[in-house]
Design a protein around this nucleic acid. Structure first.
Length: 101
DNA sequence: GTCGTGACTAGCC
DNA sequence: CGGCTAGCCACGA
């Protein structure tokens, strides 16, 4: 049973257009709880609607992929498929792909 | 009700 | 620039 918080988080994530990414921080800020970035991660992890909810478009604020329940390798692959380039586990031109809410 | 954990971030050394 | 610490939020035990 999803909580309101999680639903809000997923709702935000779903708004991220293809080929773009967002950060936990931005998401938290959009939810009026800028310090809940870790809670965002909790919601993503418990996300039952994957991959309906593109939680793979959420990355760390420094441009790294971060973690991923199904494996960061898959996450990277999905993002690359959408046109995002990686340098090891960091996004190249991260700011360019960043989708600000 | 309290404690520990986590897909985190910012600050300090 | 790399490593460690503290702080914040939601969730499960």
């Amino acid at each position: 049973m999803p909580t309101d918080f999680q639903k809000k988080v997923w709702q935000k994530i779903k708004k991220i257009p293809k080929g773009k990414v967002s950060t936990y921080k931005e998401l938290a800020f959009a939810l009026k709880k800028r310090k809940a970035y870790q809670a965002i991660g909790q919601a993503a992890k418990k996300n039952p609607y994957w991959p309906a909810v593109p939680c793979h478009r959420i990355v760390k604020s420094n441009g790294e992929i971060g973690g991923f329940a199904s494996g960061s390798r898959v996450k990277k692959k999905l993002l690359e498929k959408e046109g995002i380039r990686f340098k090891n586990d960091k996004i190249i031109n991260f700011n360019q792909f960043l989708y600000k809410l």
